[in-house]
Amino acid sequence: MRIARIALALALLAGAALLFLALRPGGGDNADDTPAEPARFEVAVGPEGPGELAQLRVRRGQRVELEVTMPYESDVHLHGYDIMAATGPGEPPARFEFVADTPGRFDLEAHGRWETIAQLVVEP
């Protein structure tokens, strides 16, 4: 009885491991297929707020060119990458150029009335 239980537990574990290996997508390091051309985004926030949050998706290692316009004077700040640029009505957009070398999700924040105005998603 006891041996039967241990055998069943081991069989379940083995099954779970096999299923994991079968489901798991191959590779892991996809650095080779990072697009060579930069990802360009424009985030334009209107007077009524950011609305649905834009997700800016890029691949790890890709160059990003991002322009943000705001309806009021504001410092625009990208979390994690910790870069900041100022913009306001009638001014040139806040411009960011960087290489997305850290994977994860990063909030783009406009200091002032609203907090998060978009999210950068850097996929591995």
Partner: peptide
Amino acid sequence: HGVGSVQDL
């Protein structure tokens, strides 16, 4: 910056 600068995918 700090506290919550990177969020997990």
